[in-house]
């Protein structure tokens, strides 16, 4: 059954979530918040995927959404491990204060 909400609404929402994630990643300086922003971006893409899948009647999109979730989990695992390593060495999560490499 097709829902009454048109596809474009879902796409707008997905684009909004993606953009919030993108802006968050670019603007916020706390690593954990940046990781959350990253998750938002992936989830924005995921929402578009399942919305398209529903409206096209093509289940491939749902399958891809599962892959993206698995990937987001893997990324979060590595990201959090790195955040721990950063905290151990720098005692801060502010990206502006993490800089020992320079030219």
């Amino acid at each position: 059954m097709m829902s009454a909400t048109p596809l474009s609404w879902y796409l707008l929402l997905s684009f909004a979530i993606f953009s919030i994630g993108l802006l968050g990643l670019l603007i916020r300086r706390n690593l954990v918040v940046m990781l959350m922003a990253m998750e938002l971006m992936l989830n924005g893409a995921n929402l578009a995927l399942v919305a398209y899948a529903r409206f096209r009647g093509d289940e491939a999109g749902q399958v891809m959404a599962f892959f993206v979730m698995a990937l987001a989990a893997a990324e979060a695992a590595i990201g959090l491990a790195l955040v721990l390593a950063i905290y151990k060495h720098f005692k801060t999560l502010d990206v502006d204060r993490i800089s020992r490499l320079n030219g």
Binding site: L25, L31, M38, L82, A85, H89, F90, I98
Partner: peptide, 13 residues
Amino acid sequence: AEASIKYFITGSL
């Protein structure tokens, strides 16, 4: 660690 987090953030972006 610093190199990796920078690579990770731009890479995931």
